[in-house]
Design a protein around this nucleic acid. Structure first.
Length: 295
DNA sequence: GGTAGACCTGGACGC
DNA sequence: GCGTCCAGGTCTACC
């Protein structure tokens, strides 16, 4: 079954896929034909399918195995729209970016959208697994969680959907440590999964919560394992760009860009982008760091 | 409110 | 092959 979804212009699927490393984390896979993106999804009906997403005139096309019921069809549409930010309006950011040489290309390249998972639960777990770990470690931990706790894809049982909260909640800390090798993060992942699975914490409602960014941030910081960096990263995924996710890489970039390689702290990074107000996270994310990268 | 140390893993390095 | 060191954010205890 094939669906076609419209995107607010400007839009570029490769730009979304390359927006950060999420496309390299299971159950995403960029090894798809025609610069496409695949994702193994588990729908509310428990149907596990592979979605093949490709750029199409005015938006994207989505191919899913077999025939979808009306509810499944609507769910796929809703999920893909969220994952790719198809309806996001970044015109205010582009208007500011046109005046900054280091961001002058973003509109032309249709940059600004950041690839996200269908659920905030999945993005929160993945974000926790990026903390205190190098990128290879994050890829390994996510792959382990998906392969060991995710529902298998019927047409290719070697591939799996992301681990559902209930499935993770049913395991224990020691299993997470030994089989997924997530280390001290095990109680964080387990605690979150159990809260979400039990209904004690409705994480997904935060995607549409009409509350100030500062309050949203406080709710994210209340999750064990989510600190300032992780909260800022999740806010970016939620379309709130008032905070810069300051990690060790951000410190290096800002150090090289404005401080001649001298060591800098969180304050310098935040100060460098403060003037961008509600768009500072995006300004940092898509800044042309080529100078720092080459040095 | 600020700070030090622990947490866990994998990679780099020296022997 | 083995041991040691280090990088990577967050939490907790302590001041």
């Amino acid at each position: 079954m094939r669906l076609t979804l419209a995107a607010r212009s400007p839009f570029s699927l490769p730009a979304v896929v390359r927006s950060h490393g999420w496309a390299r984390l299971a159950p995403f896979d960029t090894d798809a034909p025609s610069d496409g993106l695949t994702y193994v999804v588990c729908l509310d009906s428990d149907r596990v399918s592979e979605m093949l997403i490709r750029e199409a005139p005015g938006g994207v096309s989505v191919e899913v195995d077999g025939h979808l019921s009306k509810a499944e069809h609507e769910e796929v549409v809703h999920k893909v729209e969220w994952m790719l930010g198809l309806g996001q309006d970044l015109s205010s950011f582009y208007a500011l970016a046109r005046q900054e040489p280091k961001l002058a290309y973003v509109e032309e390249r249709a940059q600004g959208r950041i690839l996200r998972s269908p659920t905030l639960f999945e993005d929160t777990v993945k974000t926790i697994l990026t903390t205190n770990a190098n990128w290879a470690g994050t890829i390994r931990m996510v792959e382990a969680l998906v392969s060991q706790f995710g529902a298998p894809l019927p047409s290719d049982p070697a591939r799996h959907a992301f681990a559902a909260p209930g499935r993770l909640a049913a395991t224990d800390e020691e299993t997470l440590r030994s089989s997924a090798r997530v280390g001290y993060r095990a109680p964080y992942v387990l605690g979150l999964a159990r809260c979400v699975a039990s209904g004690a914490f409705d994480l997904e409602v935060l995607k549409i919560a009409d509350i100030p960014t500062a309050e949203l941030r406080e709710r994210l910081l209340a999750i064990k394992g989510v600190g300032e960096y992780a909260a800022a990263n999740l806010l970016m995924l939620l379309g709130r760009y008032d905070f810069v996710p300051v990690d060790s890489w951000a410190l290096k970039l800002v150090s090289h860009e404005w401080y001649g390689g001298e060591s800098v702290g969180r304050g310098e990074v935040e100060g460098a982008f403060e003037r961008w107000g509600e768009w500072q996270g995006l300004a940092y994310w898509f800044w042309d760091w080529s100078y720092a990268g080459e040095s």
